[in-house]
């Protein structure tokens, strides 16, 4: 039994179909088992075993039934995979942010490719993630906090527990790094979806996101390309187009794109003052020529006090702000273009 699970854990490519069959059978009792497992995991984690070694030992100890061993060894193995990857990546990437691939949405094939670490197929696996469940998102956000607090030790337990809570229809896959869900420590599916929606809108500047087909939308949601992302498809519209600059204005910008990578002009995901998420209105709110963005709430509070832009310390012009906030038309874009060109030159 013990050796069984160990060998299984060390083989990186267990046929997925077999797994799925096993998984379905164990779904009913998986929640209960996971509780017990968590307790055990806590035990051996607290015994201070070396992480990677401890994983397999713990697995061996845990097993009582054959299928359970299989299921968990697979999870464990994937965790190990993630574990391995985190040592190469930076801290901000949570190891257990594995997007949870659902059988229901037919993400099985994707899981195989993603598992190998190919990041090209991310959008397809992403779509199945959001369509089916929030398991990946939740585990991502929670473990991120854990990690930042420095308790790396039991992220595995947390991730497993969350994945198990998730109706157990899920299959873990490789981590996607630019998943917007990590950045939003939100617990519920609703907020996760809306957060990533904001990401999308701020990225693409689209009004009509809600009208897009579900699969396509969430597919992009999970990926949230950054302008400087290496894997960003060329076909994606960049910020320059989405801001709908008149073509005549763009000659101010020599390179065409470089300022889209400029920090001043990319819309931050959270207000730099109060650290709350920027919603759609906020991310379209540009109160100052210097490009410093903040949420409407903080802007109001600043107006009540000294009324100066936190970015450049120039006083906000009250009348202009109103028009800028409401008008999306020519004057706003022209103003933007001017400030952009100055930044690009300097």
């Amino acid at each position: 039994m013990v050796s069984d699970s160990i060998t299984n854990a060390s083989i990186p490519s267990i046929p997925n179909s077999k797994d799925f069959a096993k998984k379905k059978r164990t779904n009913r009792s998986a929640k209960l088992k996971q509780c017990k497992l968590d307790a055990r995991r806590e035990q051996w984690l607290s015994q201070g075993a070396v992480k990677s070694k401890g994983c397999k030992d713990g697995l061996g100890d845990d097993r009582k039934e054959r299928d359970r061993a299989l299921e968990n060894s697979r999870q464990r193995e994937e965790d190990n995979n993630n574990d391995r990857s985190i040592h190469h990546e930076s801290d901000s990437e949570s190891p257990s942010n594995s997007p949870v691939n659902s059988l229901l949405s037919g993400g099985g094939t994707d899981s195989a490719t993603n598992f190998g670490g190919s990041s090209g197929s991310s959008s397809s696996s992403g779509s199945s993630v959001c369509g089916s469940s929030t398991g990946g998102c939740c585990s991502g956000s929670i473990t991120e906090e854990e990690e930042e607090d420095g308790c790396l030790d039991d992220w595995e337990a947390v991730a497993d527990a969350l994945a198990a809570d998730d109706d157990n229809n899920n299959n873990k896959t490789e981590v996607e790094h630019d998943n917007p869900c990590y950045q939003s420590p939100s617990e519920s599916q609703l907020s996760v979806q809306s957060d990533s929606l904001h990401d999308l809108t701020s990225e693409f500047g689209l009004d009509s996101v809600n009208s897009m087909p579900d699969s396509a939308r969430v597919g992009y949601n999970m990926r949230a390309w950054r302008p400087d992302d290496a894997f960003r498809p060329q076909t994606l519209p960049n910020l320059a187009k989405q801001r709908s600059f008149p073509a005549s204005d763009r000659r101010f910008v020599p390179g065409g794109v470089p300022w889209t990578c400029n920090n001043v002009l990319t819309v931050p995901s959270s207000c730099p003052i109060c650290c709350e998420e920027l919603d759609f209105t906020d991310s379209n709110f540009l109160p100052c020529l210097c490009g410093f963005r903040l949420c409407l709430f903080c802007h109001k509070r600043i107006l009540e006090e000294d009324g100066r832009c936190p970015g450049c310390r120039k006083p906000y012009k009250r009348d202009e702000i109103e028009s800028e906030a409401s008008v999306q038309g020519g004057s706003l874009t022209f103003r933007l273009a001017r400030s952009c060109s100055m930044i690009a030159r300097s």
Binding site: D91, S92, E148, D149, I273, C274, C275, E276
Partner: peptide
């Protein structure tokens, strides 16, 4: 609340860097 959230974020930032 805003100040708390902000300080907490700064705390995390400090821990990370």
């Amino acid at each position: 609340q805003a100040s708390r959230a902000r300080l907490f974020k700064e705390y995390k930032e400090v821990q990370r860097e």
